[in-house]
Amino acid sequence: MNELVVETDGLTKRYGDRLAVDRVSMTVMRGEVYGFLGPNGAGKTTTLRMMLGLIRPTAGSASVLGRPAGGPEVTARIGALIEGPGFYPYLSGRDNLRTMARYQGLPATEVDRVLEMVDLADRAKDAFKGYSLGMKQRLGVAAAMLGSPDLLVLDEPTNGLDPAGMADMRALVVSLAEAGQTVILSSHILAEVQEICDRVGVINDGRLLRESTVAELRGGATLRVRATPEDAALAAVMQLAGDEGVRRIGNETLEVDLPVTAAPEVVRHLVAHSIDVHEVTVAERSLEDVFFEMTGNNKELVS
């Protein structure tokens, strides 16, 4: 699990005056699902393209599976869906996959296997140009999975999928992760990342702001206590959590920096001070909350 699969060091890409990616150093471990988050234009896809050798970095380096990124010995062990599926429109889904399988020297049975995995076997004979966006996306994922690669790079794989398709895609990624597949998942859908990913990297304006586990990023849960009279409740809770450990958040509610396990003690303490306790809840920050705090973006930018 601790084996490095991807390691970038000061990866930088400049287009003229515009710095698309600015000294990004990130790591992905074997067997983990790594979420790569950032608003549109943050530099996610450019970073992934450099990892795959599709574009050359202006500075810095990327090592993938222990070798410099982009070499055929590396790309042969990676499956990737980058910025939408690219296929021959006049070919059927199956023939597109057969073509890609031939590039790798894989047998036709491999095509059938991945078609089943993305639930496209029934429409495999249809021309790619007639596919819905969701079907095209699934075919892209199928192509990425040809040859059971050691690393799967999926850039917005749920784009264009309906809710059922998104759920299927999530289930697919989860099943791959359970089988030990290393996955880099770039996504706008933060709830999806929170649900699936072990670790995340947050990128904005080309810079990697934070890289950690989802749990670390979200921080610990806090208690919320609605009690009256509020001033008395505040004074009482401060005796347990300290002056800095309690905040008023409105509606006669206090936010308390104590572990969830301290809830019974807080309630007993308040009741002992003749304070009415109306409600005690556990407050957890979502990945979305953290993301917006870090990037300073409003929700419309990423939804």
């Binding site: 790309t75 062990r77 690219g86 590039y103 192509a143």
Partner: peptide, 9 residues
């Protein structure tokens, strides 16, 4: 793009 990520140089 798809071909270049399939393995051949």
């Amino acid at each position: 793009k798809t071909v270049f990520t399939q393995g051949p140089s």
